[in-house]
């Protein structure tokens, strides 16, 4: 591999089925182009996203993690899953900071089914942002059980 190759961040995106995954679908249907760095994992609700999933993703080699759910306050298909996510991710980001991991690597966004353009813009922005940060410090870190 060419050593001068630009760093291409790997991003894991946890998307809720009803709003954000649908938003990503709309980006597709509308042919809105965005960088190919993201790998999407569909969950029914952002409230399913356990902070440990995010940590595991960072440990497994992700340079950034996107968590996307339905808009606050009331878009959530499951009434209040997005609020649970908000609390969990906010807390996790504080913890990350304490451990010396840039909190910007984890991003929480509310993306609706009609916001294909927003989804694409978020990915674009995140890729740029993480390129500036460089590879994740957790990547390839040996974790002893």
């Amino acid at each position: 591999m060419n050593a001068k190759t630009e760093f291409e961040p790997k991003i894991i995106g946890f998307l809720c089925n009803w709003c954000s995954y649908a938003g990503a679908d709309l980006a597709g249907v509308s042919r809105i182009q965005y960088p190919s760095n993201i790998r999407i994992i569909r969950v029914m609700c952002s409230g399913r996203i356990d902070p440990t999933f995010i940590l595991e993703a960072l440990k497994d080699g992700a340079d950034g993690v996107l968590v996307a759910g339905c808009h606050l306050p009331s878009d959530c298909h499951y009434i209040s899953g997005n609020f649970k996510t908000l609390r969990r991710v906010t807390l996790l980001k504080k913890v990350l900071q304490d451990f010396g991991i840039e909190p910007k690597r984890v991003r929480l966004e509310w993306i609706s089914a009609s916001e294909g353009d927003k989804f694409a813009a978020v990915v674009r922005d995140m890729v740029e942002e993480i390129k500036k940060l460089g590879p994740s410090p957790l990547k390839n870190m040996e974790v002893k059980a």
Partner: peptide, 30 residues
């Protein structure tokens, strides 16, 4: 309704969310 919020919050991991189990999601991530 299968949102999985309970499974995420369960401190003893006693709740298994069908079709979106922790093992399944982590395998997918890895």
């Amino acid at each position: 309704k299968g949102c999985g919020a309970c499974g995420t919050a369960c401190p003893t991991k006693a709740i298994i969310m069908g079709h979106f189990t922790t093992e399944e999601i982590l395998a997918q991530v890895k």
